[in-house]
């Protein structure tokens, strides 16, 4: 009896140990859902609607991955994370991937042991102030009280910027965008600073967006992208190429409207054929099936469609493509070829 308990325990321990070593892909397939870390709420990027359904630019990446891996873009469990909790959530395995306007930096990549799989939004840090203050430049902010999200790159950039410009400020640390918005709107801080995209998204939710201006200075580079844990290259590849598929689809003119027709049979553009699985077996190399990329793109459309419907100029957030246009349109989006 005692012996069997002992052996049972030993077995259980080795099973759990074995599980930890299994690949993330197998875990996700076994669980039947993708656990995706997103922000606690940033309109246009990741926010739940009245029915609890998540929408947004970052959310679309999670859904595309779920569609590619599990065949269903709704099989995602969205885990809200703050700037402070996101890395612990990813490192501890609470989420399988993070798509939460997270800046790719050296120390996060190398020291925190994460793998950034690409950039889905090229951004930079900006400042927003009420128009009534009459401030025209960030250099005029001497002595201002600044709301700043803790645990972010923007917190470090802020300290550097004010220091190198010899101006003083009073930081008000906040944890979530919602908190920052409350403090800013009530005048508990003069300035709100974060990624320019975040400022635009936040401003879009204001009652009177026109009473607020985003200052011209962009003080940093913030390449935002999805990330996974170090060490599981297959999983990293899946996310990387799913994002690349969305971007390439736009470049090649594959949209959610024409994708069904295009994937019926091989056409005369070999790269489209390889992308959509009508030629070759790129999916097999990833450990997925042939139609993975087709499903990913069909889920919420290609990169351009996702951008336009969530944060583009037609949406309330109203951001121009700018740097985030395809390289063929003068932007920075450029993916390695599908071959």
């Amino acid at each position: 009896m005692k012996k069997s308990v002992f052996i049972g325990t030993l077995a259980a321990v080795s099973v759990t140990a074995g599980m930890a070593a299994a690949s993330t892909l197998d875990d996700v397939k076994a669980a039947g859902e993708l656990k995706c870390g997103v922000s606690t709420g940033l309109v246009g990027f990741a926010a739940a609607d009245a029915n609890g359904v998540y929408h947004g630019f970052d959310v679309a990446v999670c859904r595309a991955v779920a569609a590619a891996v599990l065949g269903d873009g709704d099989k995602v469990k969205f885990v809200p994370t703050t700037g402070k909790t996101r890395f612990t959530a990813l490192a501890s395995g609470e989420v399988d991937m993070l798509a939460r306007n997270t800046t790719w930096t050296f120390s996060r990549d190398v020291d925190l042991k994460f793998e950034f799989i690409g950039v889905n939004y090229y951004d930079g840090q900006g400042f927003m102030v009420p128009k009534a203050l009459g401030v025209a430049s960030a250099k005029d902010l001497d002595g201002a009280t600044v709301c700043i999200q803790t645990g972010t790159t923007t917190e470090l950039n802020l300290a550097d910027y004010f220091r190198s410009n010899n101006i003083s400020y009073e930081p008000v640390p906040i944890e979530t965008n919602a908190e920052g918005q409350a403090q800013y709107l009530s005048g508990a801080c003069d300035v709100y600073t974060t990624d320019a995209s975040g400022l635009a998204a936040t401003r879009a939710t204001f009652e009177k967006p026109d009473d607020h201006v985003v200052l011209p200075e962009i003080i940093s580079k913030e390449p935002l992208g999805p990330l996974v844990r170090h060490g599981d290259n297959q999983w990293g590849d899946i996310i990387r190429w799913t994002l690349n598929a969305l971007i390439t689809a736009e470049e090649l003119g594959v949209t959610s409207a024409n994708i069904d027709k295009m994937s019926m049979e091989a056409g005369n553009n070999p790269e489209i054929n390889r992308l959509l699985g009508t030629e070759g077996d790129l999916g097999g190399m990833l450990g997925l099936d042939k139609e993975w990329a087709k499903r990913a793109v069909a889920q919420s459309g290609n990169y351009g469609e996702i951008f336009d419907s969530n944060i583009g100029e037609g949406s309330p957030v109203g951001i121009a493509r700018g740097l985030n246009a395809s390289w063929t349109d003068g932007g920075l989006l450029y993916t390695p070829p599908f071959r």
Binding site: K84, F87, T88, A91, D111, L112, T150, G151, L156, P173
Partner: peptide, 11 residues
């Protein structure tokens, strides 16, 4: 326990 932990990853 907040910013330092987060910026250095030394949980």
């Amino acid at each position: 326990g907040g910013i330092t932990l987060n910026q250095t990853g030394r949980e």
